[in-house]
Write a protein that binds this DNA or RNA. Structure first.
Lengths: 174, 174
DNA sequence: ACCAATGTAAAACGATCGTTTTACATTGCA
DNA sequence: TGCAATGTAAAACGATCGTTTTACATTGGT
């Protein structure tokens, strides 16, 4: 496996499980199996590494949301939490931990959330047959809520959100 | 104003705006207007101060949720974000930043989320006339989703969540 | 065979972390 | 009047932070 890939994967895991600020560079070098010299050659700085983790996660996450129906959207989330666990949204967490003061991170978060918002709108439009910004906003809320409620209520919460979205969609159809 | 109260209030503000880990004790002493000696006499440790901030926030937040209807529940959230802004759930954030490794914090978070879950169930039962755990879970998801989506979508999101909850409630009634 | 690139191991950088201590000022009550 | 409590200001604690540097090993290409 490529050095960059290994580092990014190890960093994502540590940031996600223990927090961004609480994860020191020594722990990263150990987990990535490389010297700090190589790490800095590769990542530049901790903030740059955080931003790269977010960019890569955005790709992995958004790839799963290439679906046509709202039901499939929540099914994708069910898959995600089964594989990745539920520790909340890493993007919002990174922004909160840095207070929005790190530009590279704030930009990565903004880009992801904008793409996510657009995707939800597209899926709702495809499923419904026409655009419905209000319904899209509600589906987005359910998705975000499932992500965060699952932290303490468990993965079952995603099913509850899926059912709720189905009701809203059905009502919008008639 | 009491020293303890002033410290807790200043700490809550800094933790919320800049993150728990990113907020150092020197910034806390300065914001609270007291020496580090007095701060430690009063709070014991940073972890204890974090736990106390969460306990006090739980009281302030839950006091606002003493309502009878689901609509009032989301109206209370609208008021909250208008006054306190929208930076996500401070409880989940504290847990994520510490990786769940600090017992006093993990317990404060668990206690709050359990109380919150119970309260939502009560409000739904009161509004509906009978218990409905499934609907309660969906309302909880909408509430949590509004809290977190509002971080990047703005306060309008809470209204969208409120409308969605009304639809689900209406459907459950018939 | 050799140079340049790329890696490791480990020490060191100054800064900042959470916390304790020292020395001193102010206060309220017996 | 005087003691005990409670506060401030500031230095100091060792640890750890993110980052750079020094010294050396391994490799691949011409």
């Amino acid at each position: 496996m490529d050095l960059t890939t290994k580092l990014t994967a190890a960093a994502e895991r540590l940031f996600d499980r223990h927090g961004f600020m609480a994860t020191g560079m020594d722990r990263l070098t150990e987990a990535a199996g490389m010297s700090s010299r190589t790490l800095y050659k590769n990542a530049g700085s901790k903030a740059a590494l955080m931003a790269r983790v977010l960019t890569q996660r955005d790709r992995r996450f958004m790839a799963r949301l290439e679906v046509q129906t709202v039901d499939a959207l929540f099914a994708a989330l069910e898959d995600w939490v089964r594989v990745e666990g539920c520790r909340g949204c890493l993007f919002l967490r990174s922004r909160a931990e840095t207070g929005g003061d790190t530009p590279e991170i704030a930009e990565a978060v903004a880009a992801h959330k904008e793409a996510f918002h657009r995707r939800v709108g597209e899926v709702v439009a495809t499923d419904l047959g026409c655009e419905d910004p209000v319904l899209a906003e509600q589906v987005l809320v359910l998705f975000e809520g499932a992500t965060h409620a699952a932290v303490y209520r468990g993965a079952q919460t995603v099913s509850a959100a899926k059912a709720a979205a189905a009701i809203l969609l059905e009502r919008a159809r008639s």
